[in-house]
Each structure stands twice: as structure tokens, then as C-alpha cells.
Design a protein around this nucleic acid. Structure first.
Length: 215
DNA sequence: CAAGTCAAAGCGTACT
DNA sequence: AGTACGCTTTGACTTG
């Protein structure tokens, strides 16, 4: 019963395969801090169970007064209940005033400092996750814009080719006529009377709605 | 307080 | 089944 004390999110077993789809919080270490754990799984599990039993019973997770006497160097995991309550509190407000901190700490049987640190970490990791999401979005934007750029260049090439082969005015569908962004008009420079018929609205390209929606 | 970092804890998997 | 290992999560600390 003590196994899932910490994971609200199901982890991906094979992180290498799905990097682009789901932004994950990867705070991997530089060194090999824990790699070849020298402790056996059995003892690790025992520790885990003891720890969670203690805290379920209401034993504090005050890291300093660890019963192992390891001077608080042993890391304590919060119980499901504690994390749940912290999450609830975080949903209500992502920062705490001193009074709220005290109350939460009391309710959770933690030290105020632990609550404070938990909120700091939670804010940081929420932000990191959001950054990853934004990054993915921008990547998709960039890709779509690159494709659109490519397409438009191709179109320009084709129009140029057409102009060379038949330099007379062509009857090109209006939607595909490229309007010069600087002068905002088409070819007919002699005509002064029809100039206003080409007044152009600003061109905005949204890669996720449709392609070129000019005018 | 945010950002960066460390390191313990936990999980999945390949290997014996 | 037991173990080693790689990787992620997360509590705690340091720095600016």
C-alpha cells in the first residue's frame, strides 16, 4: 500500500519515444547520484513502509527529528494525504501568507518551512511545465510558418514564370494575386482612378486556422 | 521569491 | 526472485 505515495501523474516508461507529444518535467541529474543503489530493494521497501506508516499514523515528517538519527539527511516523502492537501491549497492560492502557512503546517503536521519549500518547488515546476508547453506550441508555429513560407515562395516562382511567358495582363483569380506589401497595389501604375480599388487590409497569418487569408 | 542545484526515493526493465 | 542500472520525481538547500 505504500507504493504510490508520490505519483499523481503516471510516468512514461519509455521517455525516449515520446518527447514531442507530452512535455514532461525532466529534471534529470548531471551526475549519477543514485544510479547503482547499494541498498537492497527489500530494505528500501521496508524503509518506505516504515516511513509511510509513521506518517499515516500522524507521525510528523519533520525531517530533522528523523528516528534514524541521520540528522535529517534522509529525505522524507510526503504522504498521499499530505500531498493531496497541499495540492488543494495550491489550487486555491499559489502563494501563502504567513498565517496560511502556519495553518497548513499545523494541519499537515509539517514544519512551516516544509510547507514553504513545497510551495516554492510547486511554483517552479508548474512554471517549467508551462514553459515546455509553450515551447512545443512555438515549435509547431514555426513549422507551420516555414511551410507557408515555402508555399508562398513557390507561388511567386510560378507567377514569375507565367509573367515571362505572357507579359500581357493575366486574368488571375483575385485570391491568388500577390499584392506588393510595400506599395499595396498591383501592376497598373498608370491608372490613378482605380488605385483605391486595391486598398488592402493588413495581412495576418495564423498557422492554425487557415492558410493565407489576405483581404 | 525565483532559479538553479543536489541527492534521496521511487519506478521500470533487462539480466542472471 | 533478486539485482543492477537508468531514469524521473521531489524534498531541501543555496544563491542572487
Amino acid at each position: 500500500m505504500a507504493e504510490n505515495t508520490m505519483n499523481p501523474i503516471k510516468k512514461q516508461p519509455n521517455p525516449s519515444s515520446d518527447h514531442c507529444l507530452e512535455p514532461s518535467l525532466t529534471l534529470a541529474l548531471s551526475g549519477d547520484s543514485c544510479g547503482g543503489s547499494s541498498f537492497s530493494i527489500a530494505s528500501a521497501k521496508r524503509e518506505r513502509e516504515v516511513a509511510s506508516e509513521e506518517s499515516e499514523k500522524g507521525g510528523e515528517n519533520t525531517s530533522e527529528e528523523d528516528e534514524d538519527g541521520v540528522n535529517g539527511k534522509k529525505k522524507l516523502r510526503l504522504t498521499k494525504a499530505q500531498s493531496g492537501l497541499l495540492e488543494e491549497a495550491f489550487k486555491l492560492h499559489t502563494t501563502l501568507n504567513p498565517k496560511q502557512k502556519q495553518e497548513l503546517a499545523r494541519d499537515l503536521k509539517l514544519r512551516p518551512r516544509q510547507v514553504e519549500v513545497w510551495f516554492q518547488n510547486r511554483r517552479a515546476r508548474t512554471k517549467l511545465k508551462q514553459t515546455e508547453v509553450d515551447c512545443e506550441y512555438l515549435k509547431r508555429c514555426c513549422k507551420a510558418l516555414t511551410e507557408e513560407n515555402q508555399r508562398l515562395r513557390q507561388e511567386v516562382q510560378e507567377l514569375k514564370a507565367q509573367k515571362v511567358s505572357s507579359p500581357v495582363y493575366m486574368h488571375v483569380p483575385a485570391a491568388t494575386v500577390a499584392v506588393c506589401p510595400s506599395c499595396e497595389q498591383l501592376g497598373d501604375t498608370k491608372s490613378t482612378t482605380t488605385k483605391n480599388s486595391f486598398t488592402k487590409k493588413p495581412y495576418f497569418f495564423n498557422p492554425f486556422t487557415s492558410s493565407s487569408a489576405a483581404c
